[in-house]
Design a binder for these strands. Structure first.
Lengths: 210, 210
DNA sequence: CCCATATATTTCGCGGCGATATATATCACC
DNA sequence: GGTGATATATATCGCCGCGAAATATATGGG
């Protein structure tokens, strides 16, 4: 089981993000964006739970202009809980990439669309690296490490995309066009191997209708 | 909105994984493991929905030894739906890394624990690269691209960890023991005994990545 | 002057995860 | 030759968390 929203909120509080709104930004655009996500629907219930368990405190703060603010702070008990959560064994990283899934089916797209997608994808990682580089302040050593290695890692990832894309684009150019479905003969009896069936590629039509 | 389980299943079917069990393995240990995940609780309902919508067909297959099998196949309508799902704009990749979150709070851990964590973390990515390298068969160009760039990307990621870890470990050694965070103003004094409740799990179960 | 944007919290439905139950066959081990 | 672990296979259920909308208000740009 992964770290749950209560622990993530405790961490955010410890890092100095002390309202629901700020915590959300920390995960959306801030230092945590690289490796975790958390949305309102999890944050506010989690904060309430932390209050109820004495792991955080809350002082309401009427404000000049802005809406009222609830300023949270982690307690000693909260710090203990956070420390304890860091001792367990962690499930390994999972990446959710719709880009990559789409690219897996590049043979169903027009070469143009694939190229555009790759542009956008690589650029996204360069942008992320840039965003991380702009993080201000002097974070604790762990967060600094993550900033440094994360920035470099994102740039490397972008570079890997660029380095391998020509092979993909070449293969799509030389290979059959958008692998269109001619009605295939029901030839298969026993697919003993789970490998992909060959679909007779009848090259049909050009770039599709959007 | 991200790609939903129905689209992911359609993709898996198109890629030649044709039972619920096989689809799950494709996302757990197979070619999709790098960039998506999907579990039974999503797969079987999704397959039923695909059947109901005519996007897939199913033939029940009594087997010699093994339990009965339901062999699914994507239909032409299914391929159209898959293609259409690939045209949208995608939300950018999100990484869920409990390792990195933990490292963000390295100042709350013992240096030993941090080092162990970094070892395990880098090794996890090397293992993943190795797993990807072992993928067999001749996949379509998109999947081949993902295999190649994914393998290299994982190795780069591991290298970034190794390259920056010394700076982190140095900072933890020279810096104060646990916890001194100047960011927060209203800090009630918390002189917790340095590195008191840190227990490194010495016993490493030989279990690899989940 | 109006609309978009930023600050700030709350709530709700729906989708997906992970665990469990159910069944059966093979293989390693003692 | 029994015992348990592992692999094949499907179905289901509770709970967690996401994303969106509702609510409220002040600033700033066009």
């Amino acid at each position: 089981m992964p770290l749950d929203s209560k622990i993530l909120c405790l961490g955010a509080l410890d890092a100095g993000f002390n309202t629901g709104y700020d915590i959300r930004k920390a995960f959306e655009e801030g230092p945590f964006q690289l490796y975790q996500s958390l949305s309102y629907g999890s944050i506010y219930p989690a904060l309430n739970a932390l209050l109820a368990e004495g792991l955080a405190t809350c002082t309401e703060q009427a404000q000049d202009g802005r809406p009222d603010k609830k300023v949270y702070a982690i307690t000693d008990a909260g710090r203990v809980a956070l420390r304890q959560a860091l001792v367990r064994r962690f499930a390994f990283d999972r990446l959710r990439s719709d880009f990559m899934f789409a690219i897996a089916f590049a043979h169903l797209m027009s070469p143009d669309q694939v190229s555009t997608l790759l542009d956008e994808y690589a650029q996204g990682y360069r942008d992320l690296a840039h965003t991380l580089a702009k993080e201000t302040g002097t974070p604790p050593p762990g967060r600094q490490f993550l900033l440094d290695m994360g920035r470099e890692g994102c740039l490397s990832w972008a570079r890997c995309i660029e380095e391998h894309r020509s092979a993909l684009e070449e293969a799509l150019r030389t290979g059959p066009g958008p692998d269109d479905n001619a009605i295939k003969a029901p030839a298969e009896e026993e697919p003993a191997t789970p490998s992909r069936l060959t679909e007779a590629a009848a090259a049909t039509t050009a770039a599709g209708s959007p």
